[in-house]
Amino acid sequence: MAATLDQVRVPRARAGRPRTRPDRVLADKGYPSKANRAWLRTRGIAATIPERDDQIAHRVRRRRRT
């Protein structure tokens, strides 16, 4: 994901050099890892990445433990 986003150029509405950092990233369920989310957070990029069903189920199971 990081290698792909390093190549992205976001055009500006007016004249000027394209921005290299998008405001928001939309990704599919193949990229919900903690590393990807942390990398986006450090760069100040908002992420819209759905979680996998197995990750949600795992989190629910862990929460029930006491």
Score class of each variant (00 low, 15 high):
1 M>I: 11
1 M>W: 06
2 A>W: 12
2 A>L: 15
2 A>P: 10
2 A>R: 15
3 A>I: 07
3 A>F: 06
3 A>G: 15
4 T>Q: 13
5 L>R: 05
6 D>R: 15
7 Q>Y: 03
7 Q>E: 15
7 Q>P: 01
8 V>F: 08
8 V>M: 13
9 R>I: 06
9 R>P: 04
10 V>N: 05
10 V>E: 04
10 V>W: 01
12 R>N: 10
12 R>Y: 02
12 R>S: 08
13 A>D: 05
13 A>L: 09
13 A>M: 05
14 R>W: 09
15 A>D: 03
15 A>L: 04
15 A>R: 05
16 G>V: 04
17 R>N: 02
17 R>A: 12
17 R>W: 09
18 P>V: 04
18 P>H: 09
20 T>I: 03
20 T>C: 04
21 R>H: 06
22 P>W: 02
22 P>Q: 10
22 P>H: 05
23 D>Q: 13
23 D>F: 05
23 D>I: 06
24 R>H: 05
24 R>K: 09
25 V>S: 00
26 L>N: 11
26 L>S: 08
27 A>G: 11
27 A>Y: 00
28 D>P: 02
28 D>T: 02
28 D>Q: 02
29 K>R: 15
31 Y>I: 01
32 P>I: 00
32 P>W: 01
33 S>G: 14
33 S>L: 12
33 S>P: 08
33 S>V: 11
34 K>E: 13
34 K>W: 00
35 A>M: 03
35 A>I: 02
36 N>G: 04
36 N>V: 15
36 N>F: 02
36 N>P: 00
37 R>C: 07
38 A>V: 03
40 L>T: 00
40 L>E: 00
41 R>S: 12
41 R>W: 09
42 T>W: 11
42 T>I: 06
43 R>M: 05
44 G>E: 04
45 I>P: 00
47 A>G: 03
47 A>T: 02
47 A>F: 02
48 T>V: 14
48 T>K: 09
49 I>V: 15
49 I>F: 00
49 I>L: 06
49 I>K: 01
49 I>P: 08
50 P>W: 01
51 E>T: 09
51 E>F: 06
53 D>Q: 11
53 D>G: 04
53 D>T: 07
54 D>L: 10
54 D>P: 01
55 Q>F: 02
55 Q>N: 08
55 Q>T: 10
56 I>M: 13
58 H>D: 15
58 H>W: 13
58 H>K: 15
59 R>W: 11
59 R>I: 10
59 R>F: 08
60 V>N: 03
60 V>H: 05
62 R>D: 10
62 R>A: 13
62 R>N: 09
62 R>H: 11
62 R>F: 09
62 R>L: 11
63 R>W: 14
63 R>P: 02
63 R>M: 11
63 R>C: 09
64 R>I: 04
64 R>V: 03
65 R>T: 06
